[in-house]
Nucleic acid binder design. Structure first.
Lengths: 125, 125
DNA sequence: TAAAGCGCTATACTATGTCAAGTGCTTCCC
DNA sequence: GGGAAGCACTTGACATAGTATAGCGCTTTA
């Protein structure tokens, strides 16, 4: 009823909310990140994101294509190759990925190392 | 096998990848966004994010607390109130939310309004 | 001729998230 | 003073989202 996916009620329409809905789908941000480095084929992309299975991958790619975030091109050579690349709206997500990148380096590196000699700052208590 | 959730192999450990894993969980970004405006109680928060059910909400909040992104405080008054607020690491996600916000306004407003009088800039194709 | 890679698709399964209800508490209101 | 309502959850049945595994028709490579 109050599921944020139901955005046909424009009463509380909010572009940020909708953007989050898209970006939080599993693999979506990984896909965008991978494609920021250049176009990839279907299987290549699956491997680049870290092992997404083809069924899910196809669903995501179709969705992103519908939203205009990426473009699917079939090169009619032999053998036919498909390539996926970000459309301009998708490329602009670089800012978002960069922000996540910056945040992650600042806050997750610590977790990863766990034996850092920094003072506990305000984290304790 | 190659599930990106299995990050115990530090072979391909990547903080960005891990950050995405956290942020892509359903409701997480909505929760962070809601809490950026200040602390909220449990039910308040559920409503603020747009109707997340209590079961999922609790799981998310516990996870975010474990990660050190938010703090749960029980005020031992009568009746006892719980409040959730972002820890410093969580507050720093403001940058990420802002980036999403900017992207959304640029690329999703168009979809929503469809009859804006702004010049199309680079959005149209 | 066999093996492997491409871009998928199909089926069956599991994990994730949801609904609806209920808990024990307290305050509000008639 | 009895009932409804709000708090912060918890529980259990269920639906949906995502996964593993296999396979399709195709082509190139060994």
């Amino acid at each position: 009823m109050e599921d944020p996916n139901d955005m046909d009620t424009e009463r509380d329409y909010c572009p940020v909310h909708e953007a989050i809905q898209v970006l939080q789908e599993k693999w979506t941000m990984h896909i965008v990140r991978a494609l920021l480095d250049g176009p990839l084929g279907f299987n290549e992309l699956g491997r680049a994101v870290g092992g997404c299975n083809p069924a899910t991958l196809k669903v995501r790619l179709d969705h992103l294509e519908d939203l205009g975030l990426l473009r699917r091109t079939v090169h009619s050579q032999m053998p036919p190759r498909t390539s996926y690349e970000l459309a301009p709206a998708g490329v602009d997500l670089q800012r978002v990925i960069d922000a996540i990148d910056a945040w992650a380096r600042e806050h997750l590196d610590v977790v990863a190392e766990a034996d850092v000699d920094e003072e506990p700052s305000a984290a304790a208590v």
